[in-house]
Amino acid sequence: MEKDRKEGIRGMANPGRYGIERVAYWLMRITGLGLLFYFIGHIYETSSLLDGKAAWNSMLELTQTTEGHIFLTLVIGMCVFHTGNGIRLMIAQSGFGFGKPRRPDYPYTPSSLNMKNKLCIYVSIGLAALAMMYGLGVMYDV
C-alpha cells in the first residue's frame, strides 16, 4: 500500500521558503480570489440601483465606514498588484526576458529567476502599496 504525499492546499503555506517568486505566486492567487469576490460584491452593489435611489444611497453608505475604507483600500492594492504582476507573467510566460539557455555552471543560478523578474515583482508590490496609500489619502481627505 502506498500513501500519497500530495501537499494540496498546504503547499500554499510558507511561500517564502522558495523565494520571492513563490510569494508572488501566492499573492497572485490571493488577490485573484479577492478580486473575484469583489466583482461578485460589486455586481450585488450596483444591482441595488434597480430598487431606486434610496437603496443605492444606503448601499453607498456602507463604503463610507472605516471597514468600508479598509476594504476598498485592499481592493485597490489587490487590483494594482494583480495587474502589475499579471503583465510580468504574460511577458515571461511568452518566453521573453530570460535570455538564452546556457550550459549550467555551479552554483547554478536559474535564468528564469533573474533580477529583471524579481525587480518586476518588487515594483508590483511597491506600486500596490503606493496606490493603497493614495487611496487612503483620498478616502480620508488627507
Binding site: G19, R22, Y25, L89, Y108, S112, L113, N117
Partner: peptide, 11 residues
Amino acid sequence: CHFAGSCSQVC
C-alpha cells in the same frame, strides 16, 4: 504551469 519558479529554485 503558473510560473512560480520553485522547480528551478530547487533543481
